[in-house]
Simulated scan of single mutants.
Amino acid sequence: MGEARERRGFKVRAATLADAPAMARVFVDTFRTAHRGQIPEHLLLERTYESSTQGWERTLREIAAAEDPQEYVCVAEDTAGEIVGIAMGGPPADWPFDDANRAAHPTGECYSLYVHTTRQRSGIGRALLADLATFLVSRGRRRLAIGVLAVNAPARAFYERIGGTLLGQRHFDDSGVLLDEVVYIWNDATCLTRVEPANSAESEDVRHI
């Protein structure tokens, strides 16, 4: 967390403001590929390089300005210096169904996990999630939640393979469209900090950028 972690042909490090345009390309390209046929077409087209760059810049500036940041964004960078994956997390989204558990066990949430379509199945997603989990645990959030579109079978299979337990289903509003998502939980996210890269289908859905 915060320091570049070298792995098989890539490294994971904290994102910087200069990364925003490259992060936007990864996000938009992967979002459109991963979710085609899963959400209305106009939601895919709403995500553009320009709007996503602006969103990441705004987020990274807010994190940099915070005295004690509770959110974290990391990127995976290949040996050529190209950004090939992104992840973001922080305090959990409001969900009354889980309030009692959160009160007893401080919880973090992964908001975003994307690996470019050309670099999936290479361990990048697992490495990004490990770095994010390390940050959340350092902030006292040992319990981790991840929401994923209910129809996103590859992402669901990925989370199940690395130990996620299905907690429940909820809805979220994406530009006026209600979408169904399921939530996976890790009651002790330290297990994710020890996950090593392995071949797996890496694809997640992002809502906030």
Rank of each mutant, 00 (worst) to 15 (best):
V148M: 07
A80P: 02
C74A: 14
S122F: 02
S52T: 15
V73W: 04
Y114I: 01
Q120A: 07
G81R: 10
G81I: 04
A64Q: 09
S51Q: 08
H105W: 13
G55V: 03
Q120G: 01
M88W: 14
E77W: 04
D131V: 07
W56Q: 04
H116S: 12
S112H: 12
V137L: 02
E57R: 12
M88E: 14
G108Q: 06
R142Y: 09
E77N: 03
E50I: 03
V137T: 08
Y111P: 03
A93F: 12
R142D: 11
A133M: 05
V115Q: 02
Y114G: 00
I63E: 01
S138P: 04
V73N: 01
V84A: 00
W56F: 11
G89W: 03
R142E: 13
A103N: 09
Q120E: 09
W95P: 05
A87S: 12
G81D: 09
A145D: 13
A76I: 03
T53N: 05
V84E: 01
Q70G: 11
R139V: 09
S51N: 13
A130T: 05
T59S: 09
R142H: 14
P106Q: 13
E67W: 00
E62K: 09
D99T: 15
S112D: 13
T79F: 01
R61S: 06
D131A: 13
E62Y: 05
V148K: 03
D94E: 15
S112E: 14
E50H: 05
V148G: 03
L144E: 04
R141W: 13
L128H: 07
P96S: 10
D78F: 02
E77G: 00
F135L: 02
A127E: 04
G89R: 07
A133W: 04
R143W: 00
Y49C: 06
G123E: 10
F97N: 15
R141M: 15
T107A: 15
V75W: 01
T59C: 05
P96T: 10
A87Y: 04
P92M: 11
R139P: 00
A76H: 00
E57K: 11
L136G: 00
T53R: 10
A93Q: 15
Q70D: 14
G108E: 10
W56E: 01
N101G: 15
E67T: 12
A76M: 04
G89F: 09
